[in-house]
Design a binder for these strands. Sequence first.
DNA 1: CGCTGCATTGAAAACACTCAAGACCTGTGG
DNA 2: CCACAGGTCTTGAGTGTTTTCAATGCAGCG
Lengths: 248, 248
Amino acid sequence: MSLELPIGAPRDCGDCQIRHRAVCARCDVDELAQLDEIKYYRSYEAGQTVIWSGDQMDFVGSVVTGIATLTQTMEDGRTQMVGLLLPSDFVGRPGRDIAPYDVVATSDIVMCCFRKKPFEAMMEKTPHIAQRLLQMTLDELDAAREWMLVLGRKKAREKIASLLAIIARRDATLKLANLQGKMEFDLPLTREAMADYLGLTLETVSRQISALKRDGVISLEGNRHVTVHDMDRLLEEAGDDSDGGILV
Amino acid sequence: MSLELPIGAPRDCGDCQIRHRAVCARCDVDELAQLDEIKYYRSYEAGQTVIWSGDQMDFVGSVVTGIATLTQTMEDGRTQMVGLLLPSDFVGRPGRDIAPYDVVATSDIVMCCFRKKPFEAMMEKTPHIAQRLLQMTLDELDAAREWMLVLGRKKAREKIASLLAIIARRDATLKLANLQGKMEFDLPLTREAMADYLGLTLETVSRQISALKRDGVISLEGNRHVTVHDMDRLLEEAGDDSDGGILV
DNA sequence: CGCTGCATTGAAAACACTCAAGACCTGTGG
DNA sequence: CCACAGGTCTTGAGTGTTTTCAATGCAGCG
């Protein structure tokens, strides 16, 4: 089979950038070979819906490159983001047929997909996959609980500061930089997506970003590029302990 | 050792009411015997804190009877409940030493505790435990995401209706009743706990409950006993699809 | 140049919060 | 049996924050 690989997809698992963080992180060579049998790459363009809530799911998989979101929508159109999927994050739930959320590509993305039935079968036999998935799920649960505090108890300004802190933190771990003083990064989300993440309107997001700018906490270059002048100040604004709060 | 068993604790696993739903649900007789070696029962009184956020955790375990809550508190005292622990729910995370949340007994409770180190060791060897824990964690994650929608996008009245619907639903599954027409149940939470769950103040909770009463959606007997006159009406008020919304 | 999509800003309205008073309930002690 | 204390809950009035609605700004692109 000479299917064309989407750009950004690795030649094989040895090449794979997300290999050590994804659901297959603990797998040995044999197990990777088995996975290889049931996997395929697929790419989606920015804005495309990967999975519709309510649809049959016949694959699970990992985000290889790009960013996707998990969202819920009420009948009247109010929507809440319930997950932000970054490279190495897992999509889908073994044992469930119907997707409970929309998965939408925020940027162009590449997914490493596994056919669901054989993946489930394999999970029964190889504990390495289930063990890693458990770890990842527990991490996601912690992140979800952190967000519940943000959604339920923080004010608009604190919400924005929290989101900026999260993104800065993620960016830092990626670049192996540390989390002090000045930091620069790009927002991977539109104002509307930020609003959906934080349970705000896009107008409020815009206003609070302007306010943080006016108060000298951040500067903007264009709409997406953010400079945080002092990380400690930002964490104060977020209402977190200065030690970073989020999970130890 | 003739330690006195807390009232409500089962004589042995065969007797245990939560056995088929707890983390040990898939274990066979051998595995249960192993677990028995490292387990002990402990009871807490209503209002007691079971685990303090930031503390060393040296056990994990299951709620056997009663209700407990998982809460996060900000420096200025704002608190957000991030989990409601019912009988069979699991407390603690294998692989983590420091508790990230407060666990508080809402009623008198009995816990079945496992010493952490040996439990972790056992998890490595017996897939049945890890598999069940994965299922439970995925369910919790779904519940958390459902709550993110409630916290981020619903209005106070919808939040209250959503909470009542959840409690009614849980009560119904317990009694094997169905979810239509009239339903009666007791609230397991104070107004303040409801507020902490929903990201509201206790005054707002009280007002909205009064409003639902005034509008004939529910009646109260005392402060805790609720009658829902028409479940479909309640679900409408909650902003959910009439089919029940929450996870299929 | 005039789209289109995204972002900002303003004014008015809606919503939930704060502060404060009082009602209700339960258990205790006179 | 009653009175009282302490906790829980309800209700009101005023305030503050966020939303809503509407207009405008700005950048990329045919």
